[in-house]
Each structure stands twice: as structure tokens, then as C-alpha cells.
Computed example of a mutant assay.
Amino acid sequence: MHSKQFFTHLIGNIMTTRIDDADRGPVLFTCSPGKEPHFFIRRHSLIFRQKHQKDLVLFSDSTSPDKAQHLLNALTEALVRRQKTKLRRRNVFFGLGFLALLTMVGHRVLSETYTTTHVPLARADSASAPLLPEKHAIEKGLMQEPSPALTTLAHNLRDAAQRTIFTVPLTTGHSRTIYVFSDPLCPHCRDIEPTLEAIGKKVNIEIFPVSLRGKKETADQVIPVLCASPEHRQALWRSLFDEPSLTSPASCDIGEKALAVNDKAFSAYGFRGTPQLISDDGRPIPFSALKNEERLSIFMNDAHQQEKKDE
């Protein structure tokens, strides 16, 4: 019998393992490994040893002894990747700081490179996409409480968005925000765009463009968008999904640097694919939370409800 494949992601200090598909497979478990995690195999089980706590059995299958070993290999690879990204993450945010200094002189460059012939393009609303309701029922235990690492991630993304260099503000004016790393040449990114527009009626959507999928072809499309003034980027971004031939603004040095920083940040945080959605409290948003209005509302508000209970 073919053994199941395991895929492990580390976002901050939250480890999630899925089965058979890295992005959409069923979740096997989620845990916080800590600074010095210790995983080992006992008989046919994978064990997680925590300080001052009982050993935790994460997986067990006596009918297929090799599964626990495959799972241990996936966890080890994820932990090794985390170690490799720590130094790179520091370099990324030094880059963010450097580009922040450029805003004082860069805004003038952005204004000069924008061409006034770019008129906002209309886009039909997607009635079938999920919307965030005003009221919802909280399901206990649906999501975990944000860790300090996720809070730091949220703070960094919020700061980067406020610098108005690295993002496309797809929607604004709401109390909550979703950050999206997206490549316009990524098929899944194109599929989810109508959903982002729909939920953008209730939450802010900040797009961090990256060139993960299309590389140079993506860069040729995205850099001119980042070169435009922030209030015009929404229309230019949407035109990439509707009628790319209608948009031909000029490129600029700041746009190139902004895209490069976004790509480095995407890699440094260990994100695996696009689109990558992050809530304004740092939690990664699963696609399952976008299936209907209630699920998204529960997910976005769960951490805040938990904080109130703990006070």
C-alpha cells in the first residue's frame, strides 16, 4: 500500500501537518514545538516530548510502520527550514527599513512615473463569493490563540502596508484587515480574486505582490503597479486579472525594490505557495475559512473573543 505523504508548515511557532496535499490536505495535527522541540518514534508512534508535560502521541499506525518515520522526516525538514530562514528574515526587515527611508524621496518619483491616462476600471461584483456578516456565532476551539511570533508577523505586515510602498490596497475603510501574498500569474490567485473583492466589502484587503509563479513575466506586470501612486494601484491590479493589455504604465526603481523585498519576505517567513492569506493578528487563513460567511467571521473574531475570555 502506498504510504501517505505528509507536509509540515511552520508559521512563527505554529507547526501544522497536512496529509497528501501541502495546501488543501486534511490537517493531521497542529502544535507549538517551542525553541527546542523533541520528536521521536516509539514502536509505531510519533511522540512529541514537552518540558514539564507528559509525552504527546501525535501519530500512530501499527499497520504501516513506515508512516511514523515519513512523518518524522517531514517534521525534521520543516525545522531545518526554519533554522535557515532566521538569518534571512533579519536581512529582509533591514531591507524594509532601508526602503522606508526611500519614501521621503521616493514618493515624488512614484508621482512622476504615474501616467494620468490610467482610469480606474469597473469590475462586476461576485454575488456568490462569501461576505463577512456583522453578527456571528463563535465556535469554541475552532482556531488557536495567536502566539507572540504571529503577533510580530502581524505587526511587521501592518507596518510594511502603512509605508505605502509594498502593497496594493484592494479595499480600505474597515476595522479589520487581511494581508494577501499574491502572484497575478498564479492560477489559484486568479481563482480567489472575486472572493477577495467580496470579502473586501467588510474587511480591508492589502495585497503584497510577489513573483513566485511568473518570475520575470510577473515582475513585468507588477512593478508598474507598485510604481503608481497608492490610490491608483487598485484599478491597475484588477486590470491584470481582467484586461492586462489595457494597462501599460511605466516601471521604476522603487517598484523593482518593493517587489524584491516582498519576494524575500515571502521566502523568509517560510510561506510555501500563493495565494497566502494572513489575518491582522498574524494567523494564516485557511481556504476552508472562505467557504461561507459564517466561517470567515468566526475565524477572524475567534482570537479576539479568546482574549476577552482570558481577561
Results as ranks from 00 to 15, higher is better:
residue 3 S to V: 07
residue 5 Q to Y: 12
residue 7 F to S: 01
residue 8 T to Q: 01
residue 9 H to L: 05
residue 10 L to G: 02
residue 11 I to K: 06
residue 12 G to K: 05
residue 13 N to I: 06
residue 18 R to W: 03
residue 19 I to N: 02
residue 28 L to F: 00
residue 28 L to G: 00
residue 33 P to A: 00
residue 33 P to F: 00
residue 33 P to T: 00
residue 34 G to D: 00
residue 34 G to W: 00
residue 35 K to Q: 11
residue 37 P to N: 01
residue 41 I to S: 01
residue 43 R to E: 15
residue 44 H to I: 01
residue 50 Q to S: 13
residue 51 K to Q: 15
residue 56 L to I: 13
residue 58 L to V: 05
residue 59 F to A: 03
residue 60 S to K: 12
residue 60 S to M: 10
residue 70 H to Q: 12
residue 71 L to N: 04
residue 72 L to Y: 03
residue 72 L to P: 02
residue 75 L to R: 00
residue 76 T to D: 01
residue 76 T to F: 01
residue 77 E to P: 08
residue 78 A to L: 04
residue 86 K to I: 13
residue 89 R to D: 15
residue 90 R to Y: 12
residue 94 F to R: 15
residue 95 G to M: 05
residue 95 G to A: 04
residue 95 G to R: 07
residue 96 L to N: 13
residue 97 G to A: 08
residue 97 G to F: 11
residue 101 L to Q: 12
residue 103 T to P: 11
residue 105 V to K: 08
residue 106 G to F: 08
residue 107 H to S: 11
residue 108 R to N: 12
residue 109 V to R: 14
residue 110 L to D: 10
residue 111 S to I: 06
residue 115 T to F: 11
residue 118 H to S: 15
residue 130 P to H: 02
residue 130 P to Y: 00
residue 132 L to M: 14
residue 138 I to Y: 11
residue 142 L to Q: 09
residue 148 P to R: 04
residue 152 T to S: 12
residue 152 T to Q: 13
residue 158 R to Q: 15
residue 159 D to W: 15
residue 161 A to F: 10
residue 163 R to F: 08
residue 165 I to Y: 07
residue 170 L to E: 10
residue 172 T to S: 14
residue 172 T to H: 14
residue 174 H to A: 07
residue 178 I to A: 12
residue 179 Y to R: 09
residue 184 P to R: 02
residue 186 C to I: 04
residue 189 C to S: 12
residue 193 E to I: 01
residue 195 T to D: 11
residue 198 A to G: 11
residue 199 I to N: 09
residue 200 G to H: 10
residue 202 K to D: 13
residue 202 K to S: 15
residue 203 V to S: 10
residue 203 V to L: 04
residue 204 N to Q: 07
residue 205 I to Y: 10
residue 207 I to W: 13
residue 208 F to L: 09
residue 211 S to K: 07
residue 216 K to I: 13
residue 216 K to F: 14
residue 221 Q to F: 01
residue 223 I to Y: 09
residue 225 V to N: 01
residue 225 V to D: 04
residue 227 C to F: 07
residue 227 C to T: 09
residue 235 A to T: 13
residue 237 W to H: 06
residue 239 S to D: 13
residue 242 D to W: 02
residue 243 E to F: 05
residue 245 S to N: 09
residue 246 L to S: 15
residue 247 T to H: 03
residue 248 S to K: 10
residue 251 S to C: 09
residue 254 I to Q: 06
residue 256 E to L: 06
residue 258 A to T: 04
residue 259 L to F: 00
residue 261 V to L: 15
residue 263 D to H: 01
residue 268 A to K: 06
residue 269 Y to A: 03
residue 275 P to K: 02
residue 278 I to A: 03
residue 282 G to Q: 04
residue 282 G to Y: 01
residue 285 I to G: 02
residue 285 I to E: 04
residue 286 P to F: 03
residue 289 A to W: 03
residue 290 L to W: 02
residue 292 N to S: 02
residue 293 E to G: 14
residue 295 R to D: 12
residue 296 L to N: 03
residue 299 F to D: 01
residue 302 D to L: 06
residue 303 A to G: 05
residue 304 H to R: 07
residue 306 Q to Y: 04
residue 307 E to C: 02
residue 308 K to D: 04
residue 309 K to Q: 12
residue 311 E to C: 06
residue 311 E to S: 08
residue 311 E to P: 06
